[in-house]
Amino acid sequence: MENDQTDKNSSSRCTFFHTDPEDYRCDVILTVKRATGAFSLVACLFMLFVIWLLRRYNSLAQKMIVSLTVAAFFDSVAYVMDESQAEGSLCNFQAWWLTYFDWSALAWVCLITMNLYLNLVREIRTEHYEIPYHLVAWGVPLLMSCLPLMRGYYGLAGAWCWIKDDHVAWRFGIWYIPLFILIFLMICCYARIICVANDRMQSWLGTFNPERERRKVSLAEEIRPLKWYPSVYLLVSIFPLLNRLHNAAYPKNPMFSLTLLHVLSAPLHGLANALVFGKDTWSQLSNTGIKLALRSRLCDSTRIGEYHPASVRYTAELESDSDDNDNNVLFYSADMSLKDRGPNGY
């Protein structure tokens, strides 16, 4: 009886290899999955810390990168969830969570690309698009993740819960086909963006103009890190696609090497995004740069208070016998004491 219970528990941990439940390959797959998910989780936290430290959340493009990082963080959480591999509500929740935040991270990458395209190629200001961007990036994934849930298609799907093996068409229709179509469109957009940017840089010739040179540098800095996002998604999606194709062709005979590459690359969206974002920020993370940034963040006591207009008192007595008795105040507020006027009383 005890042995039967042990075998049952072991088999619940390893359902993706149809062999002995004690097969070492199961432990390898699960360990790699947890490790890569944890790396991505830490990378996203570090990226959010750097964004906070360097105050990179002011422009719309920077806010979109923050949202992408948040989506990648929650996506990484799905890969470190408990892998009990038991059908039920917890498995369905993990599958829905994974689908939702996979789509959310992809949506933010696409919107970042579109925003840069509108700014540079179409020359359209997009500051007022922030709310529509959020509606798309969080709304479309909700629809895509709820469709399989409502049809009851979520369940065991290898090393984690996702769309079941007997619903292959839904796997490709919900995720892989849209994923590679969007990657192709993003590559086309960045090719166009780079061509337009190069043309404009070459056309800015003639006498030296500081504002023009500043725009050239700003343009190059804007494009350089963002152009790698489609490549990142392409690289981390190739092996999952190959493994799912193999699963569709041989559902009862999963390949260990492809499964290992799948669990090694799929959870790395957060880590890859952090590396892309950090490509141009490592130079600012020297010891001196970190100390200055932390001092600015934690030790800056300068506060700008709101001005409250009140009565203004003028006086002709410009001389006084003592600074302690100096009552000459040109702009007076009821909240202000004499100590607020500075070290010398002025």
Rank of each mutant, 00 (worst) to 15 (best):
I29N: 06
L234H: 09
T207L: 13
P225Y: 03
D165V: 01
L120V: 12
Y153L: 02
E213W: 10
G270R: 00
F16K: 08
Y307R: 09
A72P: 00
Q62F: 07
T15Y: 14
K63A: 10
Y190H: 15
L338Y: 10
V136I: 14
D75A: 09
V217C: 06
V42G: 01
D7I: 03
Y100P: 12
G342D: 15
P21I: 05
L147W: 09
H246R: 07
L182K: 10
S286F: 08
I194M: 15
P148G: 04
P178E: 05
L179G: 01
S203N: 14
Y117L: 01
K279M: 15
S84P: 04
F277S: 02
M186L: 01
C299N: 08
C195F: 08
E130K: 08
S265F: 13
K164T: 09
P251G: 02
M150L: 15
G278T: 00
A197Y: 07
K8S: 13
Y307W: 14
L98F: 07
G289M: 04
Y133F: 15
S231K: 11
Y100R: 06
K252F: 04
V42K: 06
Q5Y: 14
R215H: 09
P148C: 07
C146Y: 08
R125V: 07
H134A: 13
R341H: 11
V66T: 07
S145D: 05
K279R: 10
S333T: 10
S322G: 01
D335H: 15
L264Q: 00
W162N: 13
V136M: 09
F74T: 11
S311A: 12
H246V: 05
P267C: 03
A310P: 02
A71F: 00
S322Y: 05
